[in-house]
Design a protein around this nucleic acid. Structure first.
Lengths: 209, 209
DNA sequence: GTAGTTAGTAAGTACATGCTAACTATGGTT
DNA sequence: AACCATAGTTAGCATGTACTTACTAACTAC
């Protein structure tokens, strides 16, 4: 009756389902039953692959981590300017959020973090790495004269990350009624224009319109 | 045996406890039992004051709403420049978050929102009003020549809100190991410097150090 | 083809949690 | 001082959910 698959593929399926459902239901309301249904197993079948639900969450976190790092690495490839690499990095992050909207939900779920210190620190580490990456790019761009020389790379990176986070939050609570990457690119250009060494566009001192 | 208080004060105590515990446990893990313990009642005693838990959440949301609007209004009073009113508004918001850290947790809790459409739209409305307020201040500052004339007030307001949200998130998942308002003020100054019509500080075109 | 391993199932346990029902006792009003 | 509206209690129900146990059937090695 039941179709039998290798543990590897099943684990992967379960993690995928968890990511999909964590978005649909919210991370805390994600039950093993819901996952089992989605994946075509009985509820206890989940525990064949993950001894506890916490283990499942850790696997999900690991998956999210590798997804992110892979995209970050790819966005760094090539020999574009530092500023363009910032654009690429943020673009990659926005596309990832768009394709896997559970990520911010999990990342910022207070529930998971209070219950699960391991997850909290894992995500904190992820965000720290993202920040470091961005700050380095800002420093490079500054060095290359593409950005203001008085810019603190750490703070500039925080502002850019805030842009992404604020956008993700707004996207989520607005029921996703706008295009994430489009809006994100516009805001990023505005943010970068504020970091421009040449100052704002010509004629910006007084109202443009 | 039990001390008996007026329904008014008890309701207030319950809401306070809910706010404190929503921060400590996460909004979704906040149980009526925990609230009852904190307030010195038995668990069913809560239901004497709020027929359902949803009613409690709505009362909490209303409280948060009035808290925010009161602070916003106060931060607007006086005859400071538009830019300084932006500083005051953001400062007020940061202090509110610092004194009531449950607020971002509740505001962005996916769980509450999926379960409770009323809350979702209430908070969405709150955030929209905040954004409108900020955007108007930006527009005024632009009009007064304090900010770049090419600035889109809506987008600029989104960036500033992102700054606050990103900060709140980082503060939360870092276990609050930095001073929120201090960090916030520094980042706000950086953000505003990017909106300055005069461009970046003198000598910023190349590395300052 | 038989034996051992393991993915899967059925049935059920333990416990948390929102909520109800029936009763109790406090404290302001008369 | 008696009254009584109501804040509060005790006991319990219904439901949801992580996890267990004991078994079954599919795949794999010999």
């Amino acid at each position: 009756m039941h179709t039998r698959k290798s543990a590897e593929t099943r684990k992967s399926e379960i993690i995928n389902a968890a990511l999909r459902l964590a978005d649909k239901l919210g991370p805390e309301r994600l039950t093993t039953e819901a996952i089992a249904d989605a994946v075509g197993l009985t509820q206890p079948g989940i525990f064949r692959h993950f001894p506890t639900k916490q283990d499942l969450w850790e696997a999900v976190a690991a998956r999210v981590g590798t997804m992110m790092e892979a995209r970050w690495a790819k966005a760094q490839g090539g020999d574009a300017s530092a500023t363009d690499r910032i654009r690429a990095l943020i673009g990659a992050q926005l596309r990832l959020i768009q394709s896997t909207p559970a990520i911010p939900a999990i990342l910022f779920s207070r529930e998971l973090h209070t219950k699960n210190e391991g997850l909290r620190s894992a995500f904190f580490g992820l965000m720290s790495r993202f920040h470091r990456l961005l700050a380095e790019l800002v420093a490079q761009a500054r060095e290359a004269g593409e950005l203001r020389g008085d810019l603190d790379p750490d703070d500039a990176a925080y502002l850019i990350i805030g842009l992404v986070q604020g956008l993700a939050v707004r996207w989520s609570i607005s029921n996703r009624n706008f295009d994430l990457t489009e809006e994100g690119n516009r805001l990023l250009e505005l943010q970068l224009s504020g970091f421009d060494p040449a100052g704002p566009p010509v004629g910006a001192g007084r109202r443009a319109s």
